[in-house]
């Protein structure tokens, strides 16, 4: 019975979100921007590399830090701003059903965005470009990253009443995640240098300082979900990787639920 009511409520929220998405100019603008940028990259790709779709997909994934916040910013911040959250949170439904419904709708919009690259795939195929297992895995890679970013955006939207703050915070967090891998080595080397400066008595030898820097860099990379997908980009499929992402998304949704529930106990206006 409770499962039924969960599905019913989730379905209602999902349908409402989807209908709102496709009635608003924002969703169409996001889709259009994504399609135009993808098309632009494809043109360059075709003229320079003879068509490798993975490069276009990686380019589009690097834009998620701008696009995903536009999708998630209004999820909870707008509801609170307009007072419509009073309808949802005083209805006989669970907070989880609200969160999952909203997440599913955002995921559908995101997948629609990804669908705009399918014609590119057909064009590249017809021109004899490279479409193989690695392309399929890159698709999976990009979709998994996008779904995790949606979870992050949804959680951040639940933290504030203002859409702009939600969008900007999500952008910053996703940007940090984007550059985490490329800056990890720099940060590790910086820490190794700092330790070298502090070690005036030369107690730690140079190899250990370097090893410490490498470990810090590895730790930073470990924090980044993207680094889990490196193998997938090389064409190696690992089920634990998928599981990792599924668990990460569930954790983010759970955190969002907890955040929304905790609002009821808040003592600040």
């Amino acid at each position: 019975m409770s499962d039924q009511s969960f599905v019913r409520a989730m379905g209602a929220i999902f349908r409402r979100e989807c209908s709102q998405w496709f009635r608003s100019p924002l969703a169409w603008s996001v889709l259009a921007i994504f399609a135009v940028l993808g098309g632009f990259y494809l043109t360059i790709d075709l003229s320079l590399y003879m068509g490798i779709l993975t490069l276009e997909l990686k380019f589009l994934a690097s834009l998620f830090f701008i696009i995903i916040p536009l999708i998630t910013m209004r999820s909870f911040a707008e509801e609170r701003q307009l007072g419509t959250d009073k309808l949802l949170f005083t209805a006989p439904i669970s907070t989880m059903s609200i969160v999952v419904g909203k997440y599913a709708a955002a995921a559908v919009l995101f997948l629609c965005m990804m669908l705009t690259t399918i014609p590119h795939l057909i064009i590249i195929l017809s021109l004899g470009g490279r479409v193989d297992k690695i392309t399929a895995f890159t698709y999976l890679n990009v979709i998994l990253i996008g779904l995790v970013y949606l979870g992050i955006g949804l959680f951040i939207s639940s933290l504030t009443n203002r859409q702009t703050i939600a969008a900007l915070t999500t952008m910053v967090v996703l940007l940090i995640l984007n550059v985490l891998n490329s800056t990890a080595n720099v940060v590790g080397a910086f820490f190794a240098k700092v330790i070298g400066w502090l070690d005036v008595a030369n107690l730690i030898d140079l190899s250990r300082q370097t090893a410490l820097g490498d470990n810090i860099a590895a730790g930073i990379k470990w924090l980044n979900p993207q680094s889990r997908l490196e193998l997938l980009s090389q064409g190696v499929f690992d089920l634990t990787m998928i599981l990792y992402f599924v668990i990460l998304i569930i954790c983010l949704l759970y955190l969002t639920v907890q955040r929304l529930e905790s609002r009821k106990w808040e003592t600040g206006r």
Binding site: R16, R23, D85, A91
Partner: peptide, 20 residues
């Protein structure tokens, strides 16, 4: 009133009915 201003009266009430 907790109204979604982009919805019609019927859609809005159908949504509330689905929740309740």
């Amino acid at each position: 009133p907790p109204l979604y201003d982009d919805m019609t009266i019927e859609d809005y009430l159908a949504f509330v009915v689905a929740l309740k």
